[in-house]
Design a binder for these strands. Structure first.
Lengths: 401, 401
DNA sequence: TCCAGAGATGAATCCACCC
DNA sequence: GGGGTGGATTCATCTCTGG
């Protein structure tokens, strides 16, 4: 069900204790009127976020939270997606409405983001507060993989206490250890690393502040079963409803914007999500460099980059605006091939000078093999110890280029 | 300098605007007296955390924050390490003392921890608030490596805005992309993944709530230079001072506990930190399974494990207490070798049944190759599609074992 | 029924020891 | 000596029990 209108009013039309999960992504606390333009420039979405002060913002949310609590089943839960500038005020509101005893988790949605160059740390997480209506809330345990460093042999062993009360692993008389029962993995943590919705994701419908479907799926999985009812009072482009629909939950969405409602309706006709290759395969799948290359790059204080065939990293060189790409020769790579790869990548990107580190053991005695072919602007180094000298040279000369 | 006493009183003896960085890790908001015993049972540390209510706790902190602000230089910063049950109250206190305009970051210290079986998400982060005294705060930009998925071709290209205000990559007339100036990597994010101080770390001095030196080093690097003054009004075992000393900053530590002061003094005679192998080498160094194996394990919903030669994971099987290890045959591994490895590992750990997945293409037609040698309790599967049937079989039969 | 204290838990690391 | 692995130790734990 999708309803247009102010959720405070529309919520009042919903029965007491009828909802299993409420997810809210309310407007942010900004002091100016927002207007954000959709991707294809066809639509403009207005956010009437002109709050007098943070207290009036808090009251606005709190009024709606009270209604949310009413419609929530006794086993139900609420997730509030917070604005980073006002998250503490929102948690205060939650404490007042739900009581701090029902605070379950501060979920951190963390993601990597393109940098902006502001002074300070790069803001790359958002906070979601998880409150239950009562201690009897429904909760489905979700398990994750063990850390690769975990000693599995050991955690399957039973333990006993010694005379000082310290625990030890239990051994039978013949020195054998006793087995514990089956384990399902590690309980899900409260820090969720989920990629920010890729600008080009097929999932994108052009709505600002759109959230990834996977994020909502995770929440829905956690506290509902099939057939349960999910409510989103600020449904926006309908991500929550899409996720609910994909997981066979019933859903109710409310939004004040007519455009958002339209968008949600069309989106729900064909609910879909984009598969994140990053999440599915893990970061490791993208690591096409072996440990050795990373070590070398680290040693020479270069910036490693991963997704480029001819370039392994960039040198940090002062006094120049030119990026200097560097490539480390692979074990099974002839110097010629390595050279070609670097040159090609360099040329494509317009870099003026590339540095190739020779790693096989047929060494020459020169400081570096000299600029191989001046027109190519390629330098080959066969002894890393010389690199500082070369860097100094470059810092001196590149400014002239 | 290390001072014993209530920091509210001792702070008053410090000059105005004389400190570059203040880090506070105040007592937590618990409603009962805590007493925590040190590792070797030799000492007991008391925390007088008997706050009437959260308001009195907030006031306790706020009083001290006022003094902190006074002693801070105009370019100085303050980092407050928060109790998760009261972080919102603490941020309110910070807003009141420092003004919300000087809020810089909510730093998430995220880590993996041994779990405990509570209902809900596994709590695995802590929050540190970063406020500056003024907008003119000192800040050293720190850069990290690019994410492996980053397409570096793009990050060096200049961008322009099109007529609609959207950014595009700038192309010169001949279609070549124009280069940006050199980049140093991705600016440090506000989510810090730092391993929890390990139970066996040599860095440990037996003080409860001890923080990793690396965490403090990161903070100190961020907002101070060599020779600057770092202050910790709740210095505890002196981690902040150790980090400051290692980075050649001056330091002042205050703590109310005599024992803590003693501990700090001896610790500072030989300041050290433990190298985290995990941080140094990265998680990837511990991964000994290739992508293909992980994919198969994922497909059959098994729990992957890394640190074990003969075992790649464990099956999730209901109705049994017995862990069922599984191994995937490697490409360059004969069936015999794979079998031996699994058997050996199984036997060592006392598992009653192991499952080996055959992956080379000489297929048989049987459902599974049958229990190879019944006394070994080994099953060989050569068609993954049959696994669900086998799991059902197991769920039925294993209970009998 | 509530609270205090005992007892069980459980995975992540580093360390020590082994070959 | 170096790579592998068994073990120790931890929790501002969590749950259960008994008064």
């Amino acid at each position: 069900m999708i309803i247009q209108g102010d959720c405070l009013i529309k919520l009042k039309e919903i029965d007491d204790e009828s909802i299993d999960l409420i997810y809210l992504d309310p407007p942010f606390y900004t002091q100016k009127k927002q207007s954000l333009i959709s991707r294809d420039n066809s639509k403009e979405y207005f956010f009437d976020d002109a709050w007098e002060n943070v207290e009036s913002y808090k009251k606005y949310i709190q009024d709606r939270l009270v209604e949310c609590k009413r419609v929530l089943k006794n086993t139900g839960s609420l997730f509030l997606h917070c604005d980073r500038t006002a998250s503490h005020h929102l948690r205060l509101a939650l404490d007042e409405v739900f009581d701090s005893i029902n605070f379950q988790s501060e979920i951190i949605w963390s993601y990597k983001r393109w940098s902006n160059s502001k002074k300070g740390l790069l803001n790359s997480h958002q906070t979601i507060y998880f409150y239950s209506k009562s201690p009897e809330f429904k909760f489905n345990k979700i398990f994750e993989s063990y850390s690769p460093t975990t000693n599995i042999d050991q955690i399957f062993q039973k333990r006993v206490r010694d005379e000082n009360g310290k625990t030890k692993y239990k051994k039978s008389d013949d020195g054998e250890s006793e087995l514990m029962e089956q384990k399902m993995g590690v309980p899900l943590s409260d820090v969720w690393e989920i990629p920010y919705l890729n600008p080009k994701a097929t999932e994108r419908v052009g709505y600002p502040t759109q959230k990834p479907v996977i994020l909502l799926e995770k929440i829905i999985h956690l506290v509902t079963d099939k057939g349960d009812i999910v409510l989103d009072p600020f449904c926006g482009s309908g991500t929550t409803l899409v996720a609910a629909s994909l997981l066979e939950r019933k859903y109710i969405g409310i939004d004040i914007s007519k455009d958002a409602i339209e968008l949600t309706k069309t989106r729900l006709k064909n609910p879909m999500k984009s598969e994140s290759a990053l999440l599915k395969n893990g970061k490791e799948a993208y690591m096409n460099q072996d440990q050795k290359v990373l070590e070398i790059l680290n040693e020479i204080d270069a910036i490693p980059v991963q997704r480029n065939k001819g370039i392994d990293g960039f040198l940090k060189i002062k006094n120049t605006m030119r990026p200097v790409p560097i490539k480390i020769q692979r074990e099974k790579e002839t110097l010629e091939i390595a050279k070609d790869l670097l040159l090609k990548a360099s040329k494509k990107n317009g870099f003026q000078l590339g540095i190739l580190v020779k790693t096989n053991n047929t060494q020459t005695n020169s400081l570096f093999k000299a600029i191989d072919t001046p027109k190519d602007n390629l330098m080959i180094i066969d002894n890393l110890k010389n690199l500082p000298k070369i860097k100094a040279l470059l810092e001196h000369n590149l400014a002239l280029l």
